[in-house]
């Protein structure tokens, strides 16, 4: 009797679990269908307008044409994606590393902060489009100027955020470290850097998309490979479907980088900063 009861109970729980999974799936579907429907709707509308008003392809191609070009020219698109991806990543790494190092310097020396912060602000105010030709003149046509432009565009948000993050430590925590006779290095490694991680990742999310912009802008000037060069070429030759395909690819690159940063953040930051806990 008891055995039967147990079996029944077990069956009940599996049934309940299955029901739960079903509910969760239904919920995911409920969350996902509106944006999906919106995207499909916009694409259909776009195609209808292009076909209905007989818009010439060179002015605005329909989504069908863009997809067809993408499939047809895939190897060529990939050949141009890699240089841009490499420049973006190298610029991302370079710009953010320098920004973090300078932020650490700022936190440890008021003098350094007072001396160099205005310069950092000034560099940030120069439009990236305006500085690109200068860098191309100095560094030539290779990867270097593109990497530097991508690095420059990442640099400032990270510098500001990480400086703030390194300083946003509870004063009592610093007092604790003093009572423990901790050195400045120990305070940096065990308190300041870990507590600045959420600030760093906020900046890295911005940088993950802007570094692609930097690389592309760099490629606009005197370059014959890369998505930026392809955009210029496609525009001048009125190859609009190719232009659209390139733009979609560039956006996808940024989305991939953004997703990687977000996943990394989720792995690294498992704690919650709540005012009473720090």
């Amino acid at each position: 009797m008891a055995v039967v009861d147990q079996q029944e109970a077990a069956a009940d729980t599996t049934a309940a679990r299955r029901e739960k999974v079903k509910q969760r799936k239904a919920k995911t579907w409920r969350d996902r269908w509106p944006p999906l429907a919106a995207v499909v709707g916009i694409l259909v509308l776009w195609e209808l307008i292009v076909v209905g008003f007989e818009v010439p392809t060179f002015i605005a191609p329909g989504p069908g044409e863009v997809v067809a070009t993408m499939v047809e020219r895939w190897p060529m698109l990939m050949m141009n994606l890699w240089p841009t991806a490499l420049e973006s990543l190298a610029g991302f790494a370079l710009g953010n590393t320098i920004a973090v190092l300078i932020a650490v310097g700022f936190v440890h020396s008021r003098l350094a902060e007072r001396a160099f912060y205005p310069i950092a602000v000034f560099i940030n105010t120069i439009p990236i489009i305006a500085i690109a030709p200068i860098l191309v003149l100095i560094f030539g046509n290779g990867f270097t100027p593109k990497i530097i432009i991508a690095a420059l565009i990442c640099f400032f948000p990270t510098l500001v955020n990480v400086t703030r993050g390194l300083k946003a430590v509870n004063p009592a925590t610093l007092e604790l470290m003093h009572v423990l006779s901790a050195s400045r290095w120990e305070v940096l490694m065990r308190v300041r850097l870990p507590s600045s991680l959420p600030f760093l990742f906020a900046a890295l999310k911005i940088a993950s998309t802007t570094c692609v912009i930097g690389a592309i802008v760099g490629e606009w000037i005197g370059s014959n490979v890369g998505l930026g060069a392809l955009i210029i070429e496609a525009t001048y030759n009125f190859r609009s479907p190719l232009l659209y395909a390139t733009v979609i690819l560039a956006a996808s690159l940024a989305v991939v980088l953004f997703t990687i940063v977000t996943l990394l953040e989720r792995r690294l930051i498992r704690w919650k900063v709540d005012a009473a806990a720090v």
Binding site: E175, R190, A277
Partner: peptide, 29 residues
């Protein structure tokens, strides 16, 4: 030893690692 009004725990360290923090720092000083 000092106990503050805020617990001043390191949010990224587990309870046991927080308790052991005093054993990890300060030797250099």
């Amino acid at each position: 030893s000092f106990v503050f009004q805020d617990a001043t725990l390191m949010p990224w360290l587990s309870v046991i690692d927080n308790i052991r923090l005093p054993l990890e720092v300060g030797r250099g000083n």
